[in-house]
Amino acid sequence: MNLVTPGIGLIFWTTIVFLLLLFLLSKYAWKPILSAIKTREKGIEDALAAAENAKKEMQELKSANEAILAEARAERDAMLKEARDTKDSIINEAKTKATKEAERIMTSTREQIANEKNAAIAELKNQVATLSIEIAEKILKSELSSDEKQKALVSNLMKDVNLN
């Protein structure tokens, strides 16, 4: 077998072995290996993309959270303000109501007092009149109890009267 003369036997066997290797390795080794590697590469790529997405989403979520928080804070402030206003208005209303009521009570009390006073005065007047009449009756009775007295009286009255 010469160095640069290709032997037909080895060419024949090389071709057979190579084709056999190509066919069997392609089917049972390269195909599963390459597809597995590809799947893994795709998996890594997807995972990286997913991580990036998650990061972005996280960022978005964070800003959304902040917005919500700010909103909530504003709402709380508004609620507090409203509550304070309501409280103030309630207090004021109550105050006015109370003042009015007090005034009303005072007025009615004053009226009542005035009425009572008037009634009392009227009664007093009546009593004074009755007493005066009684006193006058008694005095008259005593003055006109005897004839001398009636005569004295008439004389007395007669003295005052100037017969003109």
Binding site: V4, P6, G7, G9, L10, T14, F18
Partner: peptide, 10 residues
């Protein structure tokens, strides 16, 4: 061996 390399080259 030139026969081997020849088969592959073909």
């Amino acid at each position: 061996n030139i026969a081997f390399t020849m088969a592959l080259s073909v």
